[in-house]
């Protein structure tokens, strides 16, 4: 009987360590930001006064980009996003600016001729997306509204293009 004790304790310890590690990782990011989970819903007015609702983009791959006008890596990737939006009708890009005020965002939006909706976000929204504790952060969300990838820092366009293509071919985007 004693021979069984050690293996059973080992199994319990392994499971405990695994679940503690999982919880720790989630605690850092909080819920709602994990790949595979439904992207947290929100409703915001964009710079043109239109309402942006995440649910309205179901059926398209969504690229959700948290950025700010003064953030250099953000400024570098935005022209690439404009290009991506131009060439991918089944992709929708949405920008969430975390600038302190809306005024510079309007100027930037016009100056860069941004061709996708942009709204100004707040800390509540940032928290629901697992905490945006540095910029830029970009989420790829599949046609069913589930988070596929969370990119921290400037994205590599070839990599993100590949991910979008792969999502467009995935089950969530195929006609039923």
């Amino acid at each position: 009987m004693k021979n069984w004790t050690i293996p059973i304790v080992l199994i319990v310890v392994c499971f405990a360590a695994y679940f503690v590690a999982r919880h720790h990782r989630r605690a850092n990011l909080s819920s709602g930001s994990q790949p595979g989970q439904l992207a947290p819903e929100f409703s915001l007015k964009d710079l043109r006064g239109q309402t942006i609702k995440l649910v309205d983009y179901r059926g398209k791959v969504l690229l959700l980009n948290f950025w700010a006008t003064w953030c250099e890596p953000c400024r570098q990737e935005i022209p690439e996003f404009i290009q991506l939006q131009n060439t991918n009708p089944n992709l929708q890009i949405v920008g969430i600016s975390l600038d302190d005020s809306e005024e510079p965002v309007h100027t930037f939006y016009n100056q860069f001729k941004m061709n996708y909706p942009v709204a100004v976000g707040d800390a509540g929204l940032a928290r629901r997306y697992g905490g945006i504790l540095g910029l830029p952060v970009t989420f790829l969300i599949d046609c069913g509204g589930r988070i596929s990838v969370r990119h921290i820092g400037e994205v590599q366009i070839p990599e993100v293009t590949e991910e979008i293509t792969s999502l467009l071919k995935s089950g969530s985007c195929l006609p039923r």
């Binding site: 999982r22 990782r25 921290i152 820092g153």
Partner: peptide, 22 residues
């Protein structure tokens, strides 16, 4: 036991792989 631990480790690492951190 060993196989269990290895499998858990692999699952944990692959879950992290989808979080692209610089």
């Amino acid at each position: 036991d060993l196989i269990c631990c290895v499998l858990m480790g692999v699952t944990s690492v692959s879950a992290q792989a989808t979080m692209r951190v610089p």
